[in-house]
Design a protein around this nucleic acid. Sequence first.
DNA 1: ATGAAAGCGCTAACAG
DNA 2: CTGTTAGCGCTTTCAT
Lengths: 334, 334
Amino acid sequence: MEKQTITIYDVAREANVSMATVSRVVNGNPNVKPTTRKKVLEVIDRLDYRPNAVARGLASKKTTTVGVIVPDVTNLYFSSLARGIDDIATMYKYNIILANSDQNDQKEIQVLNTLLAKQVDGIIYMGHKITDEMRAEFSRSKTPVVLAGTVDPDAQVGSVNIDYTEATEQVITQLIAKGNKKISFVSGALTEPINGIYRMNGYKKALKKAGINFDEKLVFETEYSYQAGEEMYNKLAKVGATAAFVGDDELAIGILNGALDHGIKIPEKFEVVTSNNSKLTEMVRPRLSTITQPLYDIGAVSMRLLTKLMNKEEVEEKTIILPHNIADRGTTKK
Amino acid sequence: MEKQTITIYDVAREANVSMATVSRVVNGNPNVKPTTRKKVLEVIDRLDYRPNAVARGLASKKTTTVGVIVPDVTNLYFSSLARGIDDIATMYKYNIILANSDQNDQKEIQVLNTLLAKQVDGIIYMGHKITDEMRAEFSRSKTPVVLAGTVDPDAQVGSVNIDYTEATEQVITQLIAKGNKKISFVSGALTEPINGIYRMNGYKKALKKAGINFDEKLVFETEYSYQAGEEMYNKLAKVGATAAFVGDDELAIGILNGALDHGIKIPEKFEVVTSNNSKLTEMVRPRLSTITQPLYDIGAVSMRLLTKLMNKEEVEEKTIILPHNIADRGTTKK
DNA sequence: ATGAAAGCGCTAACAG
DNA sequence: CTGTTAGCGCTTTCAT
């Protein structure tokens, strides 16, 4: 025979009080006489009663769970953000439903819909690009949304990022100061605003300031993968680049190793700066110079912002920019 | 004014059918006349009706979500498993509630309880060690549990792993064949069965077969981190080890870089073999030799097993061992 | 401080 | 093939 699930009703009966009272003590409502509270608590303990969050969710219209959409958790950039998100979520008593989207448009919409169907109280979205359809869904639903480490020029929703333009400009400026004239720009698709708009603008600004002409041949779009990076080095060599600014750490490591495997001296003959400062950057030799982003914090702050939004608190600014820096390590000249 | 959520009842009214019929078409029940199905579907579309999964969960006692407990998602070993889990979960229409435990006993219990309160249909646990309390909770609850990449000698629950003992034995045997006499065993706590029992047994077996005495001084327990590895190299040098078998990739990379930073030639002067074959192993130079585990598959198979358990299907064997191999790469002699 | 009662939105017999 | 009717377990007014 199935073990009977014990409900709030059982507790009420055993404690000689009403369901309402049990509900009150479970929810920490102060309007309960200490004696009855004690009595109820004791019965709860004795019966090993565990509130059913689903029933509670249906009645209260709050699930205390938030949806997290991520391209791929095995990417350290995203898993670092996810970690920050989960920690703050836990702190505020939320749980996370984590869904990998593979940045696939269909899957994203699909995932968003099941998340909404599951009545999540809020959503954190990470990705490289927001399709029109997603944007439409975001604004159509009254569920709060925060973009973490993800930019959207037309975003009506909250977001947490660093200033990619400025960071990129600084990197390029430093590279130019070290004597580089041909600095490649390697990133994912330029149709992604973070690449095509923000980083690219920073790149061009630095070039312009230094009086260097923008050369399209130095710009490479590719996928975010180690493999793509390894193959990329040849192309960089072919166009005569002496340095590369790279938008993703795994990609950068691919390029670094590609160069190394060709016997190129790093940083003497080729410099590379990456963008995410994931822990990978410190695990390779030479250590990768990089823009330092507070990855964990971006996630944490995103979740914190989301809690405010879910709580309908007033937020002064829902487009948050966190500080960044540049770490000069082994892949750039001293 | 709040936008009124539209329910199954609204659809029923608009379509001139009963809630039951709407429910049937929503759930793909074949017992609906094509005409009415069409009519209902049209109303659903027009009203933009979206079934409430929480209400459904309460009524059906199934949430189609599973809990996933993991020490830390930013660890590539675990995120790789998690990725496999999520993909199969999606395939079977489940969602994943992901919770980081930091391998903290208290937090684990805490997390397990909220997962259970949220009525997850099943749980996948990853970790280094299962405390008595967790084991007790697992057997007390009727919610199916599967351990992924996690061993528990007394496990009553499902599990998916490789044969750690055999794999370790093979590694050590190969290392011995290459002339090493002093091979260090570096892992996390030996109180964790995977280290203290399985891997250690493999280590000792290989030694014994080769007639080499077990030397406690060659065994090192440490935490799973890159940093710990970097610091570990000195100790290895001190005891005169010429090779190391390492239980974790980040740890192994730390050791590798520690040696490299000391100017040690790898693999000529020191060999290292790691255990998890995460993508990190191919990103360092020289590439790390490793036991190859099908990480993604361990996750995928775990989730598949869990679906069967949740479905109360008959499973021949719930302790699954997946095949492994040894990849001889740059950190071992040819 | 406590109880009664009406839902929350849906599924699942059961009946027809 | 379709409708009726109970719940699922809890929160939340509204009384008292």
